[in-house]
Amino acid sequence: MTATAIQIQDFSKSQCAAGLRAALNILDKWKASPEQACRVLRISRSTYTRASQQDAAWTVSLDSDQMQRISLVLNIHAALRVVFDNPDNVYGFALMKNHNEFFNGRAPLEVMAQGDMISLYETFRRIDTLRGAQW
């Protein structure tokens, strides 16, 4: 294995469930529909439904792509919390139409809900630059 190879971390089923629930909670506060949340995280509707229930013993196996998507949602949320003091902005930003070049009048959630990793990552990258006022 080379030094540039991506290292895949194994996550326990309970870690996967905790991460998924955290990401779904954020997506819910961003007012994502269940369909949008499923596309952003690349999960099935049944997994969404089970994760949304209050069963503390529920666990799930997720692949590395799904865990990377969860990580990006959590990191977008963290960046928004640094940029904005007002919870209305932290949670409302995802629905605000954005006229910067990448978004072209679309809301960040609309872009993320396209479902491809590039759209999710590029949304994160552009929001992350707000922390340094580079936008």
Rank of each mutant, 00 (worst) to 15 (best):
M1R: 09
Q9I: 15
Q9T: 13
D10M: 10
S12K: 04
K13H: 13
S14V: 15
C16I: 03
A17L: 02
A17H: 07
G19H: 02
R21F: 02
A23R: 04
L24F: 06
N25M: 11
L27K: 13
L27R: 13
K29P: 03
K31S: 15
S33P: 08
S33T: 15
P34Q: 10
P34A: 13
E35S: 07
A37E: 13
C38L: 08
S44C: 07
S44V: 13
T47G: 03
S52D: 13
Q53F: 05
Q53K: 10
Q54T: 15
A57K: 03
D65V: 11
Q68N: 14
Q68H: 12
Q68G: 10
R69M: 12
V73W: 09
L74D: 04
I76A: 00
I76E: 00
H77P: 00
A78P: 01
A79V: 00
R81P: 02
R81Y: 05
V82K: 08
V82T: 12
V82P: 01
V83P: 04
V83Q: 04
F84S: 06
N86Y: 07
N89E: 11
G92P: 09
A94G: 06
L95Q: 12
M96E: 08
K97V: 13
E101C: 08
E101K: 08
N104T: 15
R106A: 02
R106C: 00
P108V: 14
V111I: 15
Q114D: 15
D116K: 07
I118E: 14
S119E: 07
S119R: 06
Y121V: 01
R126E: 01
R126C: 02
R126V: 13
I127L: 12
I127Y: 02
T129L: 15
L130C: 04
G132R: 11
A133H: 10
Q134T: 13
W135R: 10
